[in-house]
């Protein structure tokens, strides 16, 4: 599976005429003027194995190109970005906090959407047919079908421009880059949360609907089982019946779905990060589009695809743990 991603990634970037064209484009638009940098990029991207005395490129064959690329991908050495030129992608990802920012955003919104979705789903199923039920089902269908970029723009319009409650974008206030303007760690908490709110809100609103509908559906099934009648007859409180007996038995598809939806969350995160200028991996992918920064795009695509494959794998493992009847050979 990982191999397939690596091969696809190679085919897209190395064999389609994009990458070599991109370097030529960088030179012609004057983004890179240093000849040595261009040559270094050509060698690092595997187009040239070296240069003749006259400065002519000695081209590599496809197989060498692939093996060097393959090694880079397995060792997470993604090479260097075009913009800024010759900066290590791996360093940029880790040390400038892009990976951390994305994980923060995804973690917060996944957790929130799960908690909200499951909680509302349980109560919607318990009060089947009531106004609460139909109201939340409709609401989740609506938020589920609105595109993320539209929701993000609406929230900027409402919360930033009209109500002035939250900043329109960024991870931290922009004046923190000026030395001496960064407050102490405790003073950072509130501005950071303010910046985090809108992107997390957008992503949560986009994803709680799916969890709600699934929880409701599986809960409806498990609530009609005999052991629920038994639990009620024992005199258990309604909450214990709902959460300990019904939800526990309905949790299998919910958990798997949560893991599987990780891929969609990543896709949603690209757009959300772009809207709110959230300096994460998705925003980097967006920025690299403008600069035709193919190594960065290649690396981001690889990492995102890896995350999704990992999430799928975890879903499979959890499935086996939660339901001991399922055995893997």
């Amino acid at each position: 599976m990982v191999l397939f991603v690596i091969v696809i990634n190679f085919l897209i970037f190395e064999l389609l005429p994009g990458t070599s064209g991109a370097i030529a484009n960088l030179v012609s638009t004057g983004k890179i003027t240093n000849h040595a940098t261009v040559n270094a990029l050509l060698i690092k991207d595997g187009f040239c194995s070296g240069f003749t005395a006259q400065g002519q490129c000695i081209p590599t064959n496809v197989w060498d190109q692939f093996t060097s690329y393959f090694r880079n991908m397995l060792t997470f050495q993604f090479g260097v970005s075009y913009q800024p030129p010759n900066q290590s992608i791996f360093d940029e990802m880790i040390s400038s906090g892009r990976l951390l920012n994305t994980l923060m955003l995804l973690g917060a919104s996944t957790a929130l959407s799960l908690v909200i979705g499951i909680f509302l789903g349980v109560y919607a199923a318990a009060k089947r047919g009531s106004l609460f039920d139909s109201g939340w089902v409709t609401a989740s269908l609506v938020t589920f079908s609105l595109p993320t970029f539209f929701m993000g723009l609406l929230f900027i319009l409402i919360f930033t421009q009209t109500l002035h409650w939250f900043p329109s974008g960024g991870v931290v206030p922009s004046n923190w880059t000026i030395p001496g303007q960064t407050p102490s760690l405790i003073g950072q908490i509130i501005p950071r949360l303010q910046h985090l709110f809108l992107p997390v809100f957008t992503l949560t609103l986009f994803f709680y609907g799916g969890h709600l509908l699934l929880t409701r559906a599986t809960m409806l099934e498990s609530l009609s089982e005999d052991y629920i009648v038994t639990a009620r007859a024992k005199g258990l409180s309604e909450r214990a019946v709902l959460f300990k007996h019904a939800l526990k038995n309905a949790s299998l598809p919910i958990v798997t779905n949560a893991a599987l939806s990780f891929g969609f969350i990543l896709s949603g995160a690209i757009i959300t990060e772009t809207i709110f200028n959230w300096n994460g991996l998705g925003f980097w992918l967006f920025q690299s589009i403008n600069f035709k920064d193919y190594p960065v795009m290649q690396a981001m695509f690889y990492i995102i695809a890896l995350c999704v494959i990992a999430a799928n794998f975890i879903a499979d493992v959890i499935y086996g743990v939660l339901d001991p009847r399922i055995k893997y050979q």
């Binding site: 992918l285 035709k292 695509f301």
Partner: peptide, 18 residues
Amino acid sequence: MLLVIPSLPLLIVLVAVL
């Protein structure tokens, strides 16, 4: 395999290159 790869990043990458 194609189903597992997240579609939006793949779309972005393909359109950006093509």
